[in-house]
Amino acid sequence: MSNTINLTLHIWRQKNLNDKGRFEVYKAADIDTDMSFLEMLDVVNERLTKEGKEPIAFDHDCREGICGMCAGVVNGRPHGHLPQTTLCQLHLRHFKDNETIVIEPLRSKAFPVVKDLVVDRSAFDRIIASGGFISVKTGAAPEAHTVPIRRENAELAMDAAACIGCGACVAACPNASAMLFVGAKVSHIKLLPQGQIEAQERVRKMVAQMDKEGFGNCSNAYACEAACPKGISVSTIARMNKEYFAAKLTE
């Protein structure tokens, strides 16, 4: 059922933050098409190790598309060309024999390259820390059924909350903007009654932090939506824009 292919990989190698970085070419021969993209990199790394060379550093963890750790730009698209698929879930049967594949890190000023394909996405954490939460302390919660929530809103909130924080939106955006990530978090919380109390402060602070991190501006190209492995809609950006407008008017 499975067969093997040969690939030529152009992979970004960068020793550390200060290194300029360059592409290097690797042959990946006899690759089983049932492998995932990351398993292919594993195989390449095993071979490199045996040759006494340093393997390619890349982030990965759960390998089932939920932790958001893996990311990389494959042939010019974050997570590769399949819609709503993370890199770890992309399998090699979607590539052709003798294909040349270019693998680059997520590129953005706000995501400095740490090594090879590994980038520093702590900017996302700082954005969440600036206001992406409901300030409820442990033990302070009322009984869960005290406030019913419209099912439709709960579903929309879940759609937005599905974000895995992988950074594909930033990588895909022509301006390296983080609006989809921030919009998703603002929307998730704003759609729930518990999120109303701090809504205005939250959106103001999160946007301020986003700007501080050096992300670009949104130009409504909607590339983020197309690249998002969880299919998060740009409607979340619109919702954030509205919230922000209202928050600024009443400031």
Binding site: A141, H145, I149, A161, Q194
Partner: peptide
């Protein structure tokens, strides 16, 4: 039970029925 209360207050979007209850 306290865990569910806590998580709902934090904004965990649990599945709900049409009535709005969990």
């Amino acid at each position: 039970n306290g865990i569910i209360d806590q998580c709902v207050a934090q904004g965990v979007p649990f599945a709900r029925e049409y009535s709005g209850y969990l």
